[in-house]
Amino acid sequence: MLKVENLHAGYGLSEVLQGTTLEVPEGKVVALIGANGAGKTTTMRAISGMIKPTKGSVTLGGKAIEGYATSRIARLGLAHSPEGRKVFGPLSVEDNLLLGAYNHLPMFFGFRSKAAVELGKVYELFPRLKERRTQSAGTLSGGEQQMLAIGRALMAKPKVILLDEPSMGLAPVIVLEVFNIIRRLKEAGITLLLVEQFAKSALEVSDYAYVMEHGRIAIAGTPAELHKDERVLAAYLG
């Protein structure tokens, strides 16, 4: 579904990505792990167009999307839930979710009824969000904001979801909850690229994984294969 080939990108003069290649097949959960500063978040940002790749290609469902504006890539069916969650603080929880579905709802009237089905699904997955639907998103706790960010991505009915560090800054109990949700998304057949610092947990929920080092993919394989790889064990799995 999503294919990245020989991707180069960076900020200013420092080239963070130096030829990243990876693939996310339809209906699979793929994990991207590695040390801080290895380029995981940059990979995601380059895929969704938040930074412009300098070289290489990104294809979504067979269509080349590299160099497109972020909003255009989003409309083509890529939902990126960014690092730090980035919910719209002053807006209500429900408005946040509705905006998640921006690409397939009418602009002016009747968007609420059109979104009812999706909204129902998300509220079913996250009952807490339903309780807080009228509250402004900025007042939610970190864990609730993360649920909202995932819910917002689901609202888009996307072809692929990029999920960047969903566990960041959360208490261990909430992290557990987040991984349970990822498992449920996997069962629902959602295509997912997951960046995670908790390598072990990420491997448990994924079908395939890539390990990044210094802007390149260093190791790739199924979780079972990676568990046997001594380099991975030493560096990330303790």
Partner: peptide, 26 residues
Amino acid sequence: KTLLGKAFEAVSADRDAAELMGVSAT
């Protein structure tokens, strides 16, 4: 009351995140 209006508010709250929703900031 309109989704376009909400998109307007989204851009002012967080421009990058709004782009990720498919809202064109330009």
